[in-house]
């Protein structure tokens, strides 16, 4: 048993779980706690990965790469914060989806910077303060610490008075304004914070896999993260942690069937889809959710 957990296979999975926990918890902050249907999360993930990888390849120490990942992903967040103020519901979803596609197109076509579809191989190992994370186990401990810090940070936000206002905005924007809150400020802060956290996940991912290319940061990836949030329960931190864990582990048994990769990939998507449908039928609030999307009340349109 212990041997299994120490194996590279298990450690890889555990590291991925940490990365996806960060992604789903940060997306839940935006979607679940603030009610903004954001379908561009993979873009922030990718921006963080590229920022971190490019600087690391240019020889910068890891802490600078890490900060850059947070900064540039946050900057991406600032760019969609503006449509987030103007749009709601389906329209916001489409706008953020467009942002995600644009970000991916940039990764693919800005060849002089990103090498385009060739991707960035040989991303160096993480090292800071003279310490290099050489083994998978060390990397896992690092990823675990970061994931725990992000989870604590987001939990702290949603439990604070700030988080209460977020819930108020989610429930009724006009009423939230009626109690004197500047809802634009709150939305901008939330989108930037969620995006910056996804950037952290991107940095971990880049240095874990050591190779990135634009195909990782697609709409499919966003949908996977949305599934994690919805499965665990919208507006539940605990739910997002569990949703990420389940969906990282779920397709693993497929590996042992010895299917060709193309088929395994298709099967994985089908499993996610089936799971989502079952969820919508039997547990529309997710495992721990307190809230689900419904159609915006017409009076909210201004």
């Amino acid at each position: 048993m212990l041997e299994f957990f120490a194996s590279n296979y298990a450690l890889n999975l555990l590291i991925l779980i940490c990365i996806y926990v960060i992604l789903s918890v940060s997306l839940n902050l935006i979607i679940g706690y603030s009610g903004m249907l954001n379908l561009g999360h993979a873009a922030f993930f990718g921006i963080g990965a590229y920022a971190s990888a490019l600087l690391a390849l240019a020889g910068y120490p890891y802490w600078i790469c890490f900060i850059a990942a947070v900064f540039f992903a946050g900057l991406g967040g600032a760019m969609i914060a503006y449509p987030s103020l103007k749009l709601r519901g389906d329209y916001l979803a489409i706008a953020t989806l467009g942002f995600g596609e644009i970000a991916r197109a940039v990764m693919k076509n800005w060849v002089s910077l990103t090498r385009g579809p060739l991707g960035l191989p040989g991303i160096p190992k993480i090292s800071f303060f003279g310490l290099t994370l050489t083994t998978k186990f060390q990397f896992f401990i690092f990823a675990l610490i970061i994931a725990i810090l992000v989870v604590l940070f987001v939990s702290k936000i949603v439990k604070s008075p700030f988080g209460r206002v977020l819930r108020a905005i989610r429930e009724d924007e006009i009423a939230a304004q009626a109690i004197g809150k500047n809802i634009k400020k709150y939305k901008v802060i939330v989108v930037i914070t969620g995006a910056a956290c996804a950037g952290i996940a991107g940095s971990l991912f880049a240095h874990h896999i050591t190779f990135i290319d634009p195909t990782t940061f697609t709409l499919m990836e966003t949908i996977l993260i949305v599934c994690m949030v919805v499965l665990g329960g919208v507006a539940s931190i605990r739910g997002s942690v569990i949703g990420a864990t389940i969906l990282v582990l779920l397709p693993e048994p497929l590996r042992f069937l010895g299917l060709p990769t193309s088929m395994a990939a298709a099967l994985r998507v089908m499993i996610y889809a089936a799971l989502l449908i079952l969820l919508m039928i039997y547990k529309p609030n997710g495992i721990f959710g307190e809230w689900r999307f419904r159609h915006a009340k017409s009076k909210e349109a201004l």
Partner: peptide, 26 residues
């Protein structure tokens, strides 16, 4: 100036007490 919008303008998932507390939030 405060405003009570048309329709049931409470925060439905907050308790009555929390709704009132939110009223005085600022």
């Amino acid at each position: 100036i405060t405003y009570v919008p048309q329709g049931r303008s409470v925060f439905p998932n907050l308790t009555v007490q929390e709704n009132l507390e939110m009223g005085g939030f600022i």
